[in-house]
Structure formats: structure tokens, C-alpha cells
Amino acid sequence: MHLPTLGLLAAVAAFVADQATKAWALSTLWPPYSCGMGVLPVLNLRLGFNAGVTFGMFRDSAAGAVWVLVAVGLLVVAFLGSWLWRTRSGAEAVGLGLVIGGALGNILDRLRRGAVTDFLDAHYGGWHWPTFNVADIGIVCGGSLLLISADGPGCQARNASRERRLASHDPPPNRPPRDRNHADRDAGAGHPSGARSGRALWHVA
């Protein structure tokens, strides 16, 4: 399969899963910030809204900067898309697709509601991780795949190609400076005029 197509499929899967689960959370877990429902000893489903970035970071400072976050998110998606188009690694393509799909899911939330819909509440011993969503999971998993594939075949192929290009443009090795007398003798030996001049000087002497 064409690697950019593989990444695009991963992006679509992450985006659709994120939007479908958010729609379910909005219809089932309303009102927001309630006790929610427990599904595991370490996981609750509890609706909330995040005006910051992933996992609630910079929530207070970013509350009034929705369009800035949207613009930054779109720039990141554009950069990752260009990277996806050039990738030579399947793991890298899937990782980029997951990050792109998750980022687009959160960007769409900001455009619709001014904040990202979160509903996954992980906790342990009274400590709660900031509420997150499926898009955040896609971003984290995709980023992890990119880190893992950093030393994989795709990266090795790029490094080998870069080394071949550099080798083909290497300057010739430095030669030691030649003695001037040797250069003069070589010039005389290589050129008839030089040889005649040498003989003329000999007869004059």
C-alpha cells in the first residue's frame, strides 16, 4: 500500500473514532463536571471541556486564544502532512496519521464549541490525571510510534541516502604542496618551449 495512503487511513480512523465517542459522551454523560460513571477501578467517564491544549495544559492562559490555538494546530497538521507525503516507513506513516487525525478532531471541537470535549478520567489513589479524549490517545500513540520508528528502517534509509549524496559531492582529498623546483622541471619537461629555454640557458652558461 502507498505509505501516504496508509497514513491517511490512520488519520481518518483516529478522527472518526474521536468524533463518534465525543458525540456519545455529549449525549450520555450530560451534564458536564458531574460524578460520571465508573467503568474500571482506575477509570471514570466524566464529561468536561478543555479550553487549553492536550490533557488540559495551559487551560487558563489559552481560554481566550481559541483562534490562535486553531491556527497553530492547522500549521502543525500541514507540517505533518508534508512529512507524511515524504515518509518511507510504514510505522512512521501510521504515527503521523494518528497525530493528524487526533489534532483535527480537537481543532474541530474548538471551532464548534470553543473548547475540546473530554470525558476519560483516569485516576489512582485519589489522584486524577487531567481528563482527556480519544484524540489525545491518538496523538500520544502516534507520537510514540514516531519515536520508535526514529531508528527504524525508514530513518536508516534516509540516513543512507543522505550519506550517499554527501559522498558524491565530497571534494578531492587535499594534496601536499609541490616543491617549486619540481614544478618548474615538470613544466619544462611537459612543454617543448620550456625544454628549449632550458637548453638555451645551459649553452649561455
Rank of each mutant, 00 (worst) to 15 (best):
C155M: 14
S193M: 07
V39N: 03
R113T: 06
A78D: 00
G90D: 11
R162Q: 10
G154Y: 07
L111P: 04
R110C: 03
P32G: 04
G142W: 08
N50C: 06
A14L: 10
G142R: 08
A91I: 11
H203L: 14
M1E: 10
N181R: 15
A103C: 02
P130K: 11
H123C: 00
Y33S: 01
P4L: 10
G143L: 13
H203A: 14
V42M: 08
L9Y: 06
C141S: 12
A135M: 08
F55K: 06
G154M: 08
D18Q: 02
A14G: 09
V134E: 12
L96Q: 04
A160K: 03
L40Q: 00
F55A: 08
R88N: 06
D151R: 09
L80E: 09
V16F: 04
D186T: 09
F49W: 15
A115Q: 15
G142Y: 07
L166I: 05
G36R: 02
I148D: 10
F119K: 00
L8E: 12
A13P: 14
V204F: 09
A71Q: 01
F79W: 14
E163P: 00
N181I: 15
T5V: 15
L201C: 01
P31F: 02
V204Q: 09
M57A: 08
L146I: 15
A160V: 01
L111T: 05
N133F: 12
S149E: 15
G125E: 05
R46M: 00
A115T: 13
I139H: 10
V116C: 12
S27N: 14
D60W: 11
P173D: 07
R86H: 12
G52P: 05
T28C: 07
A10D: 05
V77K: 00
L108P: 01
L47Q: 02
M37A: 09
I100C: 10
R110I: 03
G194N: 01
F79K: 05
P192R: 11
N174V: 14
G97F: 04
A160F: 06
L145P: 09
Q156S: 11
A157P: 03
P153W: 02
S82F: 06
A93L: 07
